[in-house]
């Protein structure tokens, strides 16, 4: 039979046990504490700790993802700039190789603006009188003839393009050596004039500068024949050309200045 004190002890037994256990844990050494903590970590606490690590990894991934996206954007921009630089390098090397083989000195120039004259198909370039540029100097690109210097200012110059109807050019068929005059004629584009009907020219023939006229040196690319027509009663052939230079995409040009030799 339980006595009153036994019943009271029984009621508070759990409390006493909890207190004794807690005090025992408090009083235990570091080794015992660490051992018990390890047991708790690997059993009861393991799922929570694993979840915590996973959440931390996800948030790190998110941060890393943001940083990588930013890096990709920067690298894409850099890559684009480098590709542009590579293309420019190629064009200028090509131009430089041509200039070295002639008796001309090439002055590089960038296209900086459109024509200041409304009735002139021309562009503004970044070199002028102080760079030794003079009127009527030939202007070329890595692909061929562009035009000639029309007007010279101190730091800039106006270059009239071959697309201007008032900029004719004496040329020669590279294969057949037939002479002619290249002009730009409105909707027809680049045409080759003054080729007699009996002369032999064919589509695909390369047209180069003839050196006549005293402005352009011989051998500069002008264009390729695309169409040849001989009409009855006409003394000259009607010849259309595809220009060697894309006048809509001009960025750098060379102004040819004759060397002293």
């Amino acid at each position: 039979m339980w006595s009153f004190s036994d019943r009271r002890l029984g009621r508070h037994l759990h409390f006493y046990v909890a207190i004794v256990l807690s005090l025992a844990l408090l009083a235990s050494g570091h080794r015992q504490k660490n051992l018990l903590a390890q047991i708790c970590h690997s059993t009861v606490l393991f799922p929570f700790l694993y979840l915590n690590e996973t959440i931390a990894e996800w948030s790190n991934l998110s941060e890393e993802n943001r940083e990588l996206s930013s890096l990709v954007a920067r690298l894409l921009l850099e890559n684009s700039s480098l590709k542009e630089a590579e293309l420019e390098n190629y064009r200028l090397r090509k131009l430089l190789n041509f200039v070295r083989t002639t008796r001309f000195r090439g002055v590089p120039a960038k296209i900086v603006g459109g024509s200041p004259h409304l009735n002139l198909k021309a562009v503004l370039v970044s070199v002028g009188r102080r760079d030794g540029i003079r009127r009527n100097m030939p202007v070329i690109s890595s692909d061929g003839v562009v035009g000639k210097v029309f007007e010279v200012l101190e730091n800039t110059a106006v270059v009239v393009l071959l697309t201007d109807p008032n900029c004719p050019l004496a040329v020669i068929d590279q294969k057949t050596r037939v002479l002619g005059i290249v002009r730009w004629r409105g909707h027809q584009g680049m045409v080759l004039d003054n080729v007699p009907y009996q002369e032999s020219v064919s589509p695909g023939d390369t047209i180069i500068s003839s050196g006549m006229g005293g402005v352009f040196p011989v051998g500069l690319n002008v264009g390729i024949i695309t169409k040849v027509r001989s009409e009855k009663g006409e003394i000259f052939k009607k010849i259309e050309l595809e220009p060697a230079v894309n006048f809509n995409c001009l960025e750098e040009v060379y102004i040819l200045s004759p060397t002293k030799e």
């Binding site: 409390f15 909890a18 256990l21 844990l25 570091h30 504490k33 018990l36 903590a37 708790c40 606490l45």
Partner: peptide, 25 residues
Amino acid sequence: GFLGGLFLDALAPHFLGATALLGSV
């Protein structure tokens, strides 16, 4: 109080038993 305190103390073993004691009391 005891069990919860014990498991919370396991996160910082140096304090093992403290929260269990306080929680129990």
